[in-house]
């Protein structure tokens, strides 16, 4: 089964996309971190990139910033080749890296912000001040003495203050306590309201950002197994409550992501990937009775795509 790439997302070969990669591949010796990834992040979309640890999410973001050279394929940001025009791409991008290290350990937060502001002519000093207030940055403390959470807050301020057209956020709320996490996301929502911005987030806390997201991509072992708009995802992955007759055999080509069954009754609950009508038809033809079809919250729907076997 080929990867569930939405047709609409692939249309135009990334012409109107803020971020588009073509066959992007990254190898570390024998280890394939990214395998021919065709990412499409439309302009002004909020795109969540999901995947297990080591699936290649951080690598994808690093390649977009040209922090590492690609082993193959290209990555384009606003039409610019990330490898050829690294500085220009980085000028359009606010990046929060996975690691919690913000810069020179001997500098204070305030000094680092001032230092960075010189490198981004688009820096908004008033906004930076509001951000450091809202995130309660310890401006006088040296970076080397900051906790993980405090460093993260500095990194977020650095990424947002110059109002870049693209935000690449690698686990942006990692290391922050729940109260601050909520505040960060509210700031992000306001940031998006102020100016049209494209956002590409990787996170383990999907439920936090799911109300912000309108696109989703799933990486599995370096391959992009799914990429689609949010509504389409919720239409494609649904929960079916089915009554099974005795001696029932599941149709072989049905993609069942998760299942629950109760032994007492003959009722099972399957999370199935596919068009609702098709799936219902197939189940009914096979002899099952579909009692109920319901949508799933975004996180569950996306996670359902993770263990899906893709035969090559």
């Amino acid at each position: 089964m080929s990867p569930i790439i939405s047709e609409r997302a692939g249309a135009g070969a990334g012409a109107d996309c803020a971020v588009s990669t073509h066959g992007l591949t990254k190898r570390y010796d024998r280890d394939v971190a990214l395998d021919s990834v065709d990412l499409r992040v439309p302009d002004c979309a909020v795109y969540i990139l999901l995947g297990a640890n080591g699936a290649g999410k951080s690598t994808a973001l690093k390649l977009l910033m040209n922090l590492e050279p690609a082993s193959g394929g290209t990555a384009r940001v606003f039409g610019l080749d990330a490898a050829q025009h690294g500085p220009e791409v980085r000028a359009q991008t606010g990046y929060v890296p996975e690691r919690h290290d913000a810069g020179y350990t001997w500098m204070t937060c305030g000094q680092l912000l001032r230092h960075a502001s010189v490198y981004y002519p688009a820096w908004d000093h008033a906004y930076a001040a509001r951000l450091s207030d809202a995130l309660e940055l310890k401006l006088e403390r040296k970076l080397g003495r900051l906790s993980k959470g405090d460093t993260r807050r500095v990194q977020l301020t650095l990424a947002l203050a110059h109002r870049p057209p693209l935000l690449l956020l690698d686990e942006p709320t990692d290391g922050l306590d729940p109260v601050v996490r909520k505040r960060v996301l509210a700031l992000l929502a306001e940031h998006l309201a102020d100016r049209p911005t494209t956002v590409l987030i990787t996170t383990h806390h999907v439920h936090e950002v799911e109300s912000l997201a309108d696109h989703i991509g799933v990486l599995r072992a370096g391959r992009l197994v799914a990429q689609m708009a949010r509504d389409e995802l919720q239409r494609t992955v649904q929960r079916y409550r089915i009554e099974l007759p005795d001696g029932w055999e599941a149709p072989r080509d049905l993609v069942v992501a998760a299942s629950r069954s109760s032994r007492a009754t003959r009722e099972v609950q399957w999370t199935v990937v596919g068009d609702e009508r098709e799936v219902t038809d197939r189940l009914t033809t096979a002899g099952a009775r579909v009692r109920d079809v319901s949508s799933l919250p975004l996180e569950e729907a996306a996670l359902a795509l993770l263990p899906v076997e893709t035969s090559r």
Binding site: A186, L187, A193, L212, A213
Partner: peptide, 10 residues
């Protein structure tokens, strides 16, 4: 959008 933590476009 900020209160609900929802995409402003929504």
């Amino acid at each position: 959008a900020a209160e609900l933590v929802v995409n402003p476009r929504t």
